[in-house]
Amino acid sequence: MKYIKCIIIIGVFILIFFFINHLLMPKYSETLREGSLTREYYKEDKNHEVIFLGDCEVYANFSPMVLYEKAGITSYVRGNSQQLINQSYYILKETLKYEIPKVVVFNVNSMRYGEDEKNEAYNRLLIDNMKWSKEKIDLINSSMTEGETFLSYVFPILRYHSRFSKLTSEDFKYFLKPKQNSFNGFLITKKIKPYTSLPPKKVLANYNFSDYSYEYLNKITELCQKNNIELILIKAPSLYPYWYNEYDNQIRQYALENNLDYYNLFEEKDVIGIDYQLDTYDGGLHLNLSGATKLSEYFAKILKDNYNLTDYRTDKKISSIYNEKLKEYNKLIKE
């Protein structure tokens, strides 16, 4: 009897602990929507022929709904805010546990950052809602900044205890069921903030990508080769941060040496028809819905013409899933 009581008490405390733990974690539903991107992938049917990989330059700029509507391509964006190249590698590894796409499209912007760009706040957006796996453990270990502890990812209460006094209605409203924010990993932003001016293009001491960046780019390349996946490198058409010619030359060289296709979409901005007075929500860093639609239409054609992808618009099962999503998507963009 004594032991049963003891077990019940411990059980109740564990329940309370996990309840508080979950309550204190940000819900990433109405504020900091970017934090919802990792968790939303798990709910999806894993039938994508194309996976986009990278930072904000993918989740803001490529709409899988447009890719499907225009070319019948099934795709998902596995991008997060400031997703560094080591993180992209582990996210890709995790993705391949669920599905093997025909094509992985990797945005190379993160090559510019070495190990020094690790940032706790961005780590949280990416990792907080990731399912536990070997990839998550490796991702945490390779992402943590000096002041962080692994334990704080196991027990987020260690990180978020101070939110106790800052809880809002969002924390209760989405306690059980968080809000769905993206369409296959694409975050819609309709706001327009035209380009006016940008910070100066600074002279850099060293334009060479770090060994660290190359190490993870090699890992991504090898992982794709091992799984017979076509890896495509892209640079999204953002005005800032500047993509120096020296950066571009190194990627071209890498692509050549590794027999990969590379598209610098910034160079194609006029052909795509991007107008930085209308098609960006933050003065040229990210595209808004209008810009993302133009870019996705353009890229859908590249994928369709060159990569032997299936047109799923005639597939009964998949088209019914996508048509349902499209209905919701079109409703939202017209609001």
Binding site: L32, E34, G35, D55, C56, S81, Q82, A121, Y122, L125, T196, S197, L198, P199, Y240, D282, G283, L285
Partner: peptide, 9 residues
Amino acid sequence: YSEVASCAF
């Protein structure tokens, strides 16, 4: 004058 927003914050 110009301003640069961060990715999420």
